[in-house]
């Protein structure tokens, strides 16, 4: 698969201004913009790293350039959410979709390991798409807990947080220049174990209609906080109450910015 992607990328580089993908060098692995003449044998697919924000930044910096990107299922979902929020121009993007393997899908509890290429004007798929893996069993288990048990659980988890902002920095759909998590008005600076978990509640609330379940935040967390248990639960709510699955449908806008006519919610107060 890797050779197939490398060949496709070097062929496309003749026409594109560059392709965003992971490059492995002596210094390590990081997202890079491959350009014509670059050594594509340095292009790698592992470890999993989100590329949506890199693409967005490059597109904003080079207004006329057309880039390509090597993207997994979670990456294309994140790219869709970024398009909806006007952070990425789909007409200036070519996608090399990479289908994850069954083992990879299971590790991520990924419901949609195959990249969805329908919304993109120009895209190719490499690899054989596999069906979705079963969801995280922790979530169902967690739903049976009482309120006291839930608080006890999250209190223990949030206490471990060292506020490194890693979960925000790696998130492929967190893009605001002014972040409320850095605003002393909302999150007290220098306080590691706050009385009230402002940081995590604000982060979770901002994730409600945009979390694409890539689980990068959980992977990045040095304290091992199971953030996606919380995000999976709110994702489910958004699906049940508003009928919105982030990253799935390129045509429906972000529901929290739309009226009830465009994105209704199942609530007595919405009548």
């Amino acid at each position: 698969m890797i050779q197939e992607i490398r060949d496709l990328v070097s062929e496309k580089l003749k026409k594109l201004d560059g392709v965003v993908a992971l490059r492995k060098t002596d210094q390590g692995t990081a997202p890079t913009l491959f350009q014509e003449g670059d050594d594509v044998s340095q292009l790698v697919l592992e470890p999993r790293y989100p590329v949506a924000k890199t693409v967005s930044k490059l597109q904003k910096r080079f207004k006329d350039a057309k880039f390509g990107v090597v993207a997994r299922g979670c990456d294309t979902r994140a790219l869709v959410e970024m398009v909806k929020r006007h952070q990425i121009d789909p007409d200036r993007l070519y996608i090399v979709g990479m289908a994850c393997s069954e083992e990879q899908a299971e590790t991520c509890y990924c419901a949609e390991p195959a990249p969805d290429l329908d919304p993109w004007p120009e895209a190719d798929l490499v690899g054989d798409p596999v069906p979705g893996a079963p969801p995280n069993p922790m979530v169902a288990e967690y739903e049976n807990l009482s309120r006291e048990e839930r608080w006890d659980f999250w209190n223990q988890q949030f206490t471990k947080c060292i506020k490194c902002y890693g979960c925000r920095d790696i998130c492929p759909v967190c893009f605001c220049d002014a972040c409320s998590l850095e605003d002393p008005l909302w999150v007290e600076p220098g306080l590691l174990v706050p009385d009230f978990p402002m940081y995590h509640l604000i982060k979770a609330m901002h994730m409600t209609t945009r979390c694409v379940a890539c689980r990068q935040c959980e992977t990045a967390c040095p304290a091992g906080i199971p953030l996606t248990v919380l995000y999976d639960l709110i994702r489910k709510d958004v699906g049940n109450l508003i009928g919105y699955i982030p990253g799935a449908d390129a045509d429906s806008g972000p529901p929290l910015s739309l009226t009830l006519a465009d994105a209704p919610i199942d609530s007595e107060l919405a009548k």
């Binding site: 006890d152 995590h200 409600t208 919380l230 709510d237 508003i242 929290l256 910015s257």
Partner: peptide, 29 residues
């Protein structure tokens, strides 16, 4: 709903507050 001075700004309120209520519940508040 329908009487908002800013026409439909409170449409966002009902979605936001409902989701926040659920989120509080999930964290045990």
């Amino acid at each position: 709903i329908g009487d908002c001075h800013y026409i439909d700004a409170n449409h966002r309120t009902v979605k936001r507050v409902t989701l926040l209520q659920n989120l509080l519940g999930y964290t045990g508040i």
